[in-house]
Design a protein around this nucleic acid. Structure first.
Length: 327
DNA sequence: GAGACGTGGAC
DNA sequence: TGTCCAAGTCT
């Protein structure tokens, strides 16, 4: 008789299978293969205890974590995440606050437009989804700041659905393990998406767990630099390792930061964030010497909705100060 | 599809 | 010290 253990072994028949036996991944189509089983086992033993992975994490909490984690290290997210959910435990609570409060609470996480979009998403959830986070990946994808990765991640991790979750970690693991390349391409291809879907275990709950397991493997073991192959549960079947760890193509374009508009925007917004109320233009002038660049950056911040220009010439975080004639 | 968009820790 | 890098999205 067959025994179904969806989390670790798939469907096996006692007497015909011994633990640790190596099969090609085609032996158990539509179930959990030995390779994915090895990753699931590794995850069970080595996963980090992160607040958004705990059973009491709400879909809203998972959504908040996914937005904060975009391009941002876990260690820097943790304290902001905790403070954010303590203050805004539901979409409705965030929607009821001014957007500028969200930008201020975002602190120095970076890419503050994420705070603005998360606030807009909270409002959309109240207006169109009864204040709830939708379980549908398509509905999630339609929300501001939520792209294909985040939609799949929330549908998987908050609702236990079966979606290919293609973040940079998963893409790097698959590039090495299956394609024998050191690094993934600049953006996910259709072939990559098909590959990720083909590797997904069939039961939705197992697929969701597998996705987070591969992400964790990429974050802790199969890292971009100095991968810890000696600690990897699937090193034996890794195409990149078997090929001798060939280095990927040419020079990666390194993005400058010092002296850019980006840095200037960051400085200006930091002044607004660290002041309780509106600030005069003179205070912003002190934050950046180059007048032309400062003016351009400030215009950009206003255009993005991150800064409100007040009639008296001062500047404020959005929605934190009444602007006459806007309603 | 290339470029814009923050920030700070690690090596 | 400078470069690389971290659970992407939008235009």
């Amino acid at each position: 008789m067959a025994i179904a253990d969806p989390v670790t072994r798939g469907t096996v028949t006692p007497g015909t299978v011994t633990p640790g036996t190596v099969f090609p991944d085609t032996v158990f189509p539509d179930t959990v293969t030995p390779r994915s089983g090895a990753i699931l086992d590794w995850y069970a033993a080595h996963q980090r205890d992160l607040p958004w992975r705990r059973p009491d994490a709400t879909p809203w909490a998972v959504l908040v974590s996914e937005i904060m984690l975009q391009q941002t290290p876990v260690a820097r997210v943790l304290p902001v995440y905790a403070a954010w959910l303590a203050r805004w435990p539901s979409p409705a609570s965030l929607a009821a606050s001014p957007a500028g409060d969200a930008v201020r609470a975002w602190g120095r996480l970076g890419y503050p437009r994420r705070a603005l979009r998360l606030h807009a998403t909270a409002q959309a959830l109240v207006e169109r989804h009864g204040g709830q986070v939708p379980a549908s990946a398509d509905a999630l994808r339609a929300l501001p700041g939520i792209g294909s990765y985040t939609a799949a991640a929330v549908a998987s991790f908050a609702f236990g659905q079966r979606h290919a979750v293609l973040d940079t970690n998963v893409r790097r693991v698959l590039a090495r393990l299956v394609s024998g390349r050191e690094l993934p391409s600049a953006s996910p291809s259709a072939a990559e998406r098909r590959l990720a879907e083909s590797l997904l275990p069939e039961p939705p709950a197992v697929a969701a767990r597998w996705s987070v397991a591969v992400m964790e493997l990429g974050a802790l073991v199969c890292t971009a630099a100095r991968p810890r192959c000696a600690s990897c549960p699937v090193a034996a079947s890794c195409a990149w390792r078997r090929a001798g760890h060939p280095a990927d193509g040419g020079p990666r374009r390194t993005q400058k930061y010092a002296g850019t508009d980006r840095q200037c925007r960051g400085r200006l917004l930091a002044v607004l964030r660290d002041c309780a109320g509106p600030v005069p233009g003179s205070q912003l002038e002190a934050a950046w010497a180059d007048q032309l660049q400062r003016s351009r950056a400030l215009d950009g911040l206003v255009a993005d909705g991150l800064v409100d220009p007040l009639p008296d010439g001062r500047f404020a975080l959005p929605g934190t100060h009444p602007v006459p004639g806007t309603h």
